[in-house]
Nucleic acid binder design. Sequence first.
DNA 1: GACCTATATGTAACTTTATAACATTGCAAG
DNA 2: CTTGCAATGTTATAAAGTTACATATAGGTC
Lengths: 172, 172
Amino acid sequence: MPDHADHGCPGCESPDLAFARHDHAHCSADALSRAEALAAERGLRLTPVRRRVLEILLEEHRAMGAYDVLNRLAAEGFGNQPPVAYRALDFLEEQGLAHRIRRLNAFTACVHPGEAHAPAFLICRACNRVAEAPAEGLRAALDQAGAALGFAVEGSSIEAVGLCPQCAGAAA
Amino acid sequence: MPDHADHGCPGCESPDLAFARHDHAHCSADALSRAEALAAERGLRLTPVRRRVLEILLEEHRAMGAYDVLNRLAAEGFGNQPPVAYRALDFLEEQGLAHRIRRLNAFTACVHPGEAHAPAFLICRACNRVAEAPAEGLRAALDQAGAALGFAVEGSSIEAVGLCPQCAGAAA
DNA sequence: GACCTATATGTAACTTTATAACATTGCAAG
DNA sequence: CTTGCAATGTTATAAAGTTACATATAGGTC
């Protein structure tokens, strides 16, 4: 397996660059092989539907609705009923291979699966693209805010809406 | 208008105490009068539907789905179609009088309207209650994380799922 | 290899959540 | 009073997500 941190693709190397141009084909291939390794490691089955859904999310490189994914699946001969897509997406999310963007009712492939991380998402309101920002500090702060009330934080969704660099530039 | 910070109701005084027992009738009345003041100040119309929706959210003191609110409205002689509820809820949200909880597809009255705040929500997965936690620091950190990528954060939703003190106690 | 079981997939039907589009009402400024 | 705009009412439909049950298939066991 390639060393994720040392292959020279900015988009893969650093999630911070999700908005920047990068060799995305490389990212996809890499993320996929990482997913396979992860599944093997955990004794999980990365079945055809699941694998294909992950591929689709990686290919599109954007947040996709469950029904968008479903349409792609149906066109390729998989089942065409909602549970087919939701089950695969839920599996991927549980395994940290994909994330759910609640503000968009959509899903996106995780760019660095396996690495423990509490993601924060930056959602551009103009182009709708989504970047995953490093948020360890944010999550820690949230845990702490919860703890102050005696609340035990188990999961979090941290999402920001705004303008990405490209769209902000275009507007100006 | 009563001084919000000095009337002795712990639930009102400190949003941190949302999970704690408190004089809720007082909170409601207070929040409502604050909403009225705010509307007057901004030249907005706190119409019967809007006002009633806010009252309902305050009364129930929990996150409510738009259709839950709609049912209450319909029972009271207001329109019984979804836009009636959504429009009022959207208005309240825009004015900072209510918040949308994306993980629950639900809405909740803001406990301290008018005060600038970037709320974080703590959602108990057992009892489904929601507390609004102070999150200025979180929001600042999110702004900064965005800025590092050239992303201009305009709005945020920060939500945590976990166990509230009561439910954690009951489980143990 | 034949069988059994757990897991995954396929499918139908339905619920819940949300929006679009347009008609109607009513308050408010001139 | 009338004209215009904001708010509400209403119809219809779209989008998102779930329940329940039938079928298939991978992997383990004999």
